[in-house]
Design a protein around this nucleic acid. Structure first.
Lengths: 104, 104
DNA sequence: GCACTATATGAGCAATCAATCATCTTTACC
DNA sequence: GGTAAAGATGATTGATTGCTCATATAGTGC
């Protein structure tokens, strides 16, 4: 049995990368096929395919086949919530830095 | 100006590691000094120091000096929320795997 | 000053990662 | 069958990561 902290780290690591965040930001609006994603974020098809596969294995994306295309989507609402929290956290930090600047 | 996705990835990466998750789980209950943390998670002092430093720079930990000791604490409630969401996500996945097993 | 404790940091190393190019598989359509 | 499109995957490479050992720094008390 894999240790809980390891499993949690796997989930978090699946989010903690720029290209994957770009993908997730796109998938916020609903499912997309690989052929839509990789031009939108201006990355190689193979690279995007790998990231999608990785996120699906980590359990944060679902995969649906339709003819030639394969659609990926965010699997759980928690993922979106985590993205929002990350943005909120970032906002706090920027705000804090702003206060520091103003104090000069 | 660093791109937003990059900054978000930095924050998430600060959480996405087993040793750091162990540390954060400890800091849930309040601030701790390095000398309390590294024996509790059974890691080298130097290693823990590095992880704490990294998380502090990423903006998720605060640091307080008191004599020889340095106390670290979780800086924003969002961090705890993210840890909870990660656990919830993990729970969902385990539950899903359980359903698959039962279906056999 | 010296000794001791708490923490940080430099160097080194093995492991992992993200991206690229080329190739392969699968499905659709003729 | 052949061709074309969508996606996955093997091999490679440069960069980053996590850890360890040894050493450095900073604060305390003698």
């Amino acid at each position: 049995m894999t240790d809980a902290a390891t499993r949690k780290a796997d989930i978090l690591r699946a989010l903690a990368q720029e290209t994957r965040l770009d993908i997730l930001e796109l998938l916020r609006d609903g499912e997309r096929c690989v052929c839509e994603i990789f031009p939108a974020i201006r990355q190689e098809q193979s690279n995007v395919s790998r990231h999608l596969n990785m996120m699906q294995k980590a359990g944060i994306l679902s995969r649906r086949k339709e003819g030639l295309k394969i659609f990926y989507a965010i699997k759980h609402p928690e993922v979106v919530q985590m993205l929002d929290l990350t943005a909120a956290l970032l906002g706090r930090e920027v705000e804090g830095a702003g206060r520091l600047l103003k104090a000069l």
